[in-house]
Simulated scan of single mutants.
Amino acid sequence: MLQLETFLPYRINVLAKRVSKELARRYQDQFGISIPEWRVIAILGREQPLSSNDIVERSQMDKAKVSRAVARLVETGFLARAVHQQDQRLLRLSFTPAGRDLYERIAPLALEWERQLLDCLAPAEREELTRLLDRLDARLDRMAEE
């Protein structure tokens, strides 16, 4: 019989939702942004300019969710849209100065929150967790190809 409490996909989903809810509360309270908006900002903090499709691919978020997040970030002045030089149909997204400032304020807080969450694990356990997550991710890639 399927026991949800021990079924890995269920446990991972519940844990991910709990993490997102806690982060959403902090980001909403402190910065007035949602988790999808933060994910867009975090992705652009690593690489820009990008299209909305690039962000969908990197985040694994629903296209509509990314579209709403991008629209709000443009509306609030954190992102700018520019037409792609080679393909006029594509819009490239990048930070405005206010968006860069927001990223630079949130990123250290996100890293500190992650440190606090993982603080219950010994350094070797954190390394093992990373290795295990990487192995599961690679296994999903192989299963998708089969």
Rank of each mutant, 00 (worst) to 15 (best):
P97D: 14
F95M: 04
L93C: 10
R26L: 07
D62L: 02
I106K: 01
E37V: 07
G32W: 04
V56H: 02
D54M: 06
Q28T: 11
T6Y: 03
L91Q: 12
L118H: 08
G45V: 00
V66C: 05
T76A: 07
L79A: 06
R135H: 08
Q86E: 15
S94W: 00
I106A: 04
L44V: 00
Q85N: 03
R131I: 00
L23Q: 03
G77C: 04
R139N: 14
F78K: 03
Q28L: 05
D119M: 01
A24T: 05
N53V: 14
R135N: 09
Q3P: 12
A64T: 15
N53K: 12
E104C: 11
K21W: 07
Q88C: 01
R25K: 09
D101W: 03
M61H: 08
R46L: 10
A71V: 04
I55S: 02
R68W: 06
D101N: 11
E75V: 10
R81A: 15
R39L: 13
E146F: 07
L50K: 08
F7T: 15
K63A: 13
E145P: 05
Q116I: 01
Y103I: 00
G99R: 00
I41Y: 06
I12L: 14
E146I: 11
A122N: 08
R115H: 11
R26F: 15
Q60L: 15
R72E: 07
S51C: 05
R139Y: 15
E127T: 06
V40G: 09
L15D: 11
G99W: 01
L121N: 10
R25G: 15
Q85Y: 03
V19I: 05
A80L: 09
A69W: 07
E146W: 09
I43M: 11
M143H: 05
R72D: 06
L44K: 00
E75N: 08
A24C: 12
L133M: 11
D137Q: 07
L8M: 14
S67V: 01
P108G: 00
I12T: 10
P123T: 02
T76K: 06
P36S: 07
R18N: 15
E37F: 03
V83N: 11
L8Q: 13
R46W: 06
R72S: 12
R135A: 14
L129M: 08
D101L: 12
I55V: 10
L136W: 14
A138Q: 13
A122T: 13
E114T: 09
L23K: 01
R92K: 15
R139A: 14
L2A: 09
A98P: 07
L8D: 14
K63Q: 13
Y27H: 08
T96Y: 04
A107P: 07
A69S: 04
E104D: 13
A124F: 09
Q85K: 09
